[in-house]
Design a protein around this nucleic acid. Structure first.
Lengths: 122, 122
DNA sequence: CATAGATATTGACAGTGATCTAAGCCTGAT
DNA sequence: ATCAGGCTTAGATCACTGTCAATATCTATG
């Protein structure tokens, strides 16, 4: 449970709907690190491409050609997504495959989930 | 920092689940501008506070005391949220009230919605 | 009008981030 | 062992962003 590695754990622990109650500062830090990772047009497209790709995974060679960016730049964006806990990475032979991490995706889904019975709706 | 007063309309037009198909570049630009706005610990807390506040709205005076930040800084963050289309603003007397815009929130919800069936085909 | 209080704007500064080129590391094949 | 291809790392540069102090604006009231 307690991986001393990076900190996707923290972000996963805190998936409360935004509208439920004022989010504590510490939780906001963790959630915002996930959101910052995905809040970039290139990384959004990368996530979308990986998620919708056959088998739910894609190698760098599948992704790079879709952009007008250098390959190191794509690699950099993939690293950001990986280190934030949004993408898993697996090397198979010469290729590196990326795959969305369900837990992180679930956290995002929960974040924006509507709270039924919100006093906001009248 | 100047926000180009982009039409929230644009962002709203493009609420397709991430996993459904590779997101077009133009749509990614619009969605990422929404995500960038909310991908900050202070702004996340502000959104959460507004959403969960009584009546679904809050004035600046309700929000500012919760932070260790200057009043202009909070005002700046609220402006970012407002110009991105996430918050509505209404001046009543001396006070300014902010309220989450349902359309923008719905766009976020849809973005992270799980594609049921997860058909790699259709 | 003058004043006080609530919020916004301006201008400056430091920190962060996206991108590129160049170089490095692995792996499979010659 | 050497080589080529797929991918990552390192370092530099330029743009952007979060923050504050100072100032401005707007509104209600005396």
């Amino acid at each position: 449970m307690e991986l001393p590695l990076i900190q996707p754990e923290g972000a996963l622990a805190c998936c409360t709907p935004l509208a439920r109650e004022p989010m504590p500062a510490e939780q906001a830090e963790q959630v915002s690190s996930l959101l910052k990772a995905i809040a970039d047009p290139v990384r959004l497209r990368l996530m979308s491409m990986v998620l919708s790709h056959e088998g739910g995974e894609a190698c760098v060679c599948d992704l790079t050609p879709a952009f007008d960016l250098s390959q190191p730049t794509i690699s950099h964006h993939l690293k950001v997504l990986h280190e934030s806990g949004l993408l898993d990475r697996e090397k198979r032979g010469v290729w590196v495959y990326y795959r969305a991490k369900p837990d992180a995706m679930a956290a995002m889904t929960t974040l924006f989930a509507t709270v039924s019975g919100t006093p906001a709706d009248s």
